[in-house]
């Protein structure tokens, strides 16, 4: 992507992130969202992170890497455990970096 394309991309992102935030106060001032939409939105974050995490771990270039020797997978299981236990984003990321570096350079 060229820097001009990145600019367009950011502008596009600005438009689509600003509109959903600013429209409700003007439009649905007193009405609540329909329960159906609200329920759907509840499942968006977990879905998007699930899709991203699996892709980051198992897709290597253009092919799937489902082997147990996949260092992304080993590091991620440790990060998952740390994150569930500590509920701390900082600790999870630092652990992930250290474990990943060790797996890549030492083991």
């Amino acid at each position: 992507m060229t820097s001009v394309e990145v600019m367009y991309c950011i502008l596009g992102m600005f438009v689509v992130s600003y509109i959903p935030r600013v429209v409700p106060p003007f439009l649905l001032a007193k009405r609540a969202l329909s329960p159906m939409v609200e329920r759907w939105l509840k499942y968006v974050p977990t879905s998007v992170f699930g899709a991203l995490v699996f892709s980051e771990i198992f897709i290597d270039g253009n092919k799937l890497n489902l082997s147990l020797g996949n260092i992304n997978l080993i590091a991620s299981l440790i990060v998952l455990a740390v994150s569930l236990k500590t509920k701390s984003l900082g600790k999870s990321i630092v652990t992930g970096m250290v474990v990943f570096w060790l797996l890549k350079n030492v083991v």
Binding site: F54, S55, V79, G96
Partner: peptide, 26 residues
């Protein structure tokens, strides 16, 4: 980035259905 996504993901694990749906998405 991967580690951060995992961390952010776990913050949404407030019931089993959400965990399952996340894995399904993956």
């Amino acid at each position: 980035l991967t580690a951060m996504f995992i961390g952010l993901w776990t913050f949404h694990f407030d019931n089993y259905l959400k965990i399952i749906i996340g894995v399904v998405a993956g």
